[in-house]
Design a protein around this nucleic acid. Structure first.
Lengths: 217, 217
DNA sequence: TGTACATCAGTGAACGCGCGTTCACTGATGTAC
DNA sequence: TGTACATCAGTGAACGCGCGTTCACTGATGTAC
């Protein structure tokens, strides 16, 4: 009998065993789908549980509360934001300024591909932005960009009296984030309706204007 | 008796007459305070009514529903965004490039002064962004900036084949919006902790990099 | 100027809803011997 | 290998809450004559 039962379970994968195995991670996946479908204003824990196919009380065994889940979701978002940037950089010219351009394109691509997640990360007050986990994840995205900018411009910290290094970093960050936020919300029709290739070309030109060339010292 | 009652009412302004007089506008003011205090994720119509000192059923006589009120609130936000930019421009050098810089500073100031309203305008799905009222208001903010950029750079539409005009406009918009969003959320500590004067100086330098100087034709 | 009456702009009670969370429970799993 | 037992990870019912909206109502205002 035992073998038959096991076979039946294997043949009918929709019948989850009583214990899920990795519900925590399944809930995060479900949460992301919930976020995509409902927007982060319509997000609910019950909806997430339903998507994951468990009772709505089950998440309590894996996350302290709904904001705990959102915090972890945002943290993962930052990790993916970084890896999206790295993916773009890998395909680009290794020259530092080209690397910055690629990073910005990656940043924007992430936002456009995951608009609701992006808003959770930057526009919501629900994740715990003081918690170790999230601070660390967000920080690494920032540090990556700062290091890249320093390398590209030859401006090192501490900032000189003209704040040139600050202008570099803030500029790249502002352009990336501004375009990402506007484009992912569809609020920049001027660029939004352009073919992707041309749009990227424009973005790269913009980045080139923002990042000062290396000063020979 | 009548005169005495009138006097009493005047002496005790906290006693509102049965009819409010201009409840619609009072509700919008209250809604903005609610937004400021609770954030746009904690916003509720009942909270607004309470702040305005009326029953929570009263708003129904002035707005179709809660999203109608939020739509009007967002539209007013865009109008104030424009007027904040104009205020900064009035104090600045009339030279076009200086005017753009001032506009960007005004944009950022608005976002920093009204972070929750700013998010309602750009990060929420609740206002009706297809409605005439809101489209018109948002449009006017955009048109103002476009006209200014065209004037500053001498690049006219239709865009040339290098998309120089597009880079100009998108660049200014991106820098303004990116810095506004990040600074108002406190997510750009690099600039956030700087004295305002220095911060503005950095922003202006950035804008100067983004906006190409007029090409002599 | 007075009166009748329609309309407007409030009130307060009640509605149903979906939410996050708690709780006692139970099935499944892992471990000690 | 078997058995007893602790622990883990689910269930489903129930909790209280705040929400937006509806409703019959009533007080105040405006208008016609």
């Amino acid at each position: 009998m035992k073998t038959i039962d096991t076979k039946a379970a294997a043949a009918a994968p929709q019948m989850r065993p009583y214990h899920h195995g990795d519900l925590a991670s399944a809930l995060l996946d479900a949460a992301e789908r919930e976020l995509t479908d409902k927007g982060f204003e319509g997000f609910s824990l019950r909806g997430v549980a339903k998507r994951a196919g468990v009772s709505h009380a089950a998440p309590a065994h894996h996350f302290q509360d709904v904001n705990g889940l959102l915090t972890e979701l945002a943290a993962r978002g930052f990790e993916r934001l970084v890896s999206r940037q790295l993916a773009f950089r890998k395909k680009a010219d290794p020259e530092p300024r080209a690397q910055i351009g690629a990073s910005v394109l990656g940043y924007i691509a992430f936002a456009v591909e995951n608009p609701s997640l992006f808003r959770l990360m930057f526009g919501s007050q629900r994740p715990d932005f003081n918690g170790e986990r999230l601070v660390q994840a967000a920080r690494s995205a920032f540090d990556d960009l700062v290091a890249l900018a320093a390398k590209a411009t030859g401006n090192s910290d501490p900032p000189d009296k003209d704040h040139t290094a600050l202008v570099d970093v803030a500029g790249v960050w502002a352009v990336a984030h501004g375009l990402a936020d506007l484009l992912s919300a569809g609020r920049l029709p001027l660029l939004h309706n352009l073919p992707e290739a041309i749009r990227n070309q424009i973005i790269l030109k913009l980045v080139e204007r923002v990042v000062e060339p290396v000063q020979p010292s």
